[in-house]
Write a protein that binds this DNA or RNA. Structure first.
Lengths: 205, 205, 205, 205
DNA sequence: CATGAATGAGTCTTCATTCAT
DNA sequence: AATGAATGAAGACTCATTCAT
């Protein structure tokens, strides 16, 4: 028995999702600058003006998307894995990210690229997502080093190398497309190969 | 004793360089879409119309830049290192690329990003640069495996992981900026750490 | 014991006043074109749609305001002073108008300005307010001339000169604002000075 | 024998005049808010974009018009009449202004009205035009009082009353249009009647 | 009656490209 | 060959008005 207030709120949220999903799709396909607000409206099946009833401008759509699809999920992920220091974690996170990345590649990579060009978005992303993730992984690597499991590497550098590998791998995957010899390979196998490379690179022998 | 023809050609080349350098700078600063042709003309110190005497349109500037600053240098590099299979090569190339990359980050990364959004540019880049480089490195890795020096990894995947690591590392470096703990570290040390990670990850023990 | 009809009517009138007062305020602050219907609704504390239940459009609000706050009061004033021919009348009306004007300057002058731009409103105002007032004053001046009290001026012209003086004085007062040397002067004194100027200008010596 | 520079400058000035004249006409007819930039372009016989090559925005057209057609002429007038203190001056200035005003009424009054709504324009107008004119007239009135020719009035108030009379008279003239009994009267006669009213109002008897 | 989300025509403004000089 | 003023198509954004609830 939803009150009037609650029903209204639900409708509002549905609209916001509708708009954000459409914007994400259009931004991904054409890039932020080339995407037009009428494009987004058409994709969402609503009128141009409606978008402006929910978001004050085109750039705010980008910000909202970033919040909803990147920052919020990461925050949740981070909260759930705060104390995790197990050795298998690296492989897990890598597979997780890689799966997520290859899956949503066409969708989110253009978004990530777009963010590169907006200093404020870049800063927000850096603060809310990258720094926490990096810090978490740094601690993990440091604890493994201390435990004698890993070689004596610089945790900060190595962490960024691993994170960068995941991102860069996806970029290359996309750029090469079906011309790449790795195009058909199963995602799980790709993740395993990367994880193994990193693990062997870190482990003390 | 330069003939009229030759002199003309020299002037033309100077103009083209003048325009392309300006375009590279402006594209890097503002991104392709936000950069305007008058911006570029102003930066080059010439009139708008002059640009159109040398290049048919704005997008052609991007293509020409890509050819001149990315594809041509790589082609030359590839020609000079065709048969290279030495083990230190990975470290060398990594340091080379990393130095180049961190150096020209602000200049070329926006260009790279821009390329991501133009399917044709992406394809050209993939064909002319990535594939040759990847093939070259694949062969190198494969020969090392055959020689028993490297573990039995998938050369295609590993090659892309390493290349991606370099690219992704630079991206993260840029996104985090001076908030990163690795911000002040010497470039040479960064390259060594990455090379060591990769080498240890590959080597058979 | 108010019938259902009467109660309904009272509610309706209250709503109309509520809307018109809000519209007057907003029009005064931002001008007709820059004022938005949502602005007015917000000011009135009601929903946008409600306004359209009482007035068919934005412009009709302006017309209704003019009727209610300018035409109707003047009509009443005119009815009450139909036969007035006393000599002190000029001073009285001038003080009255000036007081009213300086008082409601910020409120009604923008409205008056707005009216200037709408030909139909201008005509209505001219017919319903100006002509009656001018005619009334013309007669007064003429009778004073006939009585030998005033010089032999053209009553129509002089009447408009006096009326114009009041309006123009207020305009200048507003434009100059607190940079004017007359800014701090008491309203009563201002009115006296103006009335004296006019009276001396008219009186036969 | 105009140099290239000079010819260019002349063309530019012609364009600016062309645009400003068109803008003045359209603003006068429809008011600032209802006038559209395409309207102005059409009136000037040029493309929309051309206007933006000369003025950064619509509002800047209003400012430029005010400068060119109101502030600059007044500055020139003021410079030419700086020391004028003759008694006939009031009549002269009144006739001058009245002629100017009734002449350009349809053109400039809407502009004046528009200015009322833009606080910055209002301030500029007040500073550059009104204050100098008022100061000039104040001095004139004061000197006449000192000479015993005028009654002992407040020069600041009286000056604004006279200035206001001219402006207000024109306003009423316009509002009443051809329904006014003074509609057909010769401009010279109107000015004389007003000047006489003021003069008699001021003179000591 | 009251509500306020949805609509889309209408604005201002930008900028790639052209072309007369 | 160089110039840069002119062009107008295209895009972001506003807001009067409607209508389902």
């Amino acid at each position: 028995m939803a009150s009037r207030e609650e029903r209204k709120k639900r409708i509002t949220q549905r609209r916001e999702k509708q708009i954000l999903d459409a914007a994400l799709l259009v931004f991904s396909r054409k890039g932020f600058d080339k995407a037009t607000v009428p494009d987004i409206a058409r994709q969402a099946g609503i009128a141009v003006g409606t978008i402006y009833n929910y978001y004050p401008g085109k750039r705010d759509l980008l910000i909202a998307i970033t919040n909803k699809y990147i920052i919020a999920p990461f925050a949740e992920f981070a909260a759930n894995n705060a104390g995790y220091t197990d050795a298998g974690f690296i492989a897990a996170i890598m597979e997780n990210r890689l799966s997520f990345g290859l899956e949503g590649l066409e969708k989110f990579l253009p978004l990530f690229i777009e963010m590169q060009r907006d200093p404020e978005l870049r800063r927000r992303y850096s603060e809310k997502v990258l720094s926490p993730v990096m810090t978490m992984m740094e601690k993990l690597v440091a604890s493994r080093i201390e435990a004698g499991a890993f070689r004596d590497v610089n945790p900060a550098v190595v962490t960024r190398a691993i994170g960068g590998m995941v991102i860069g791998f996806m970029l290359l995957y996309r750029v090469e497309g079906d011309r790449s010899p790795i195009h058909g390979i199963d995602r799980k196998n790709l993740a395993d190969e990367l994880a193994s490379l990193v693990f062997q690179g870190l482990v003390r022998k």
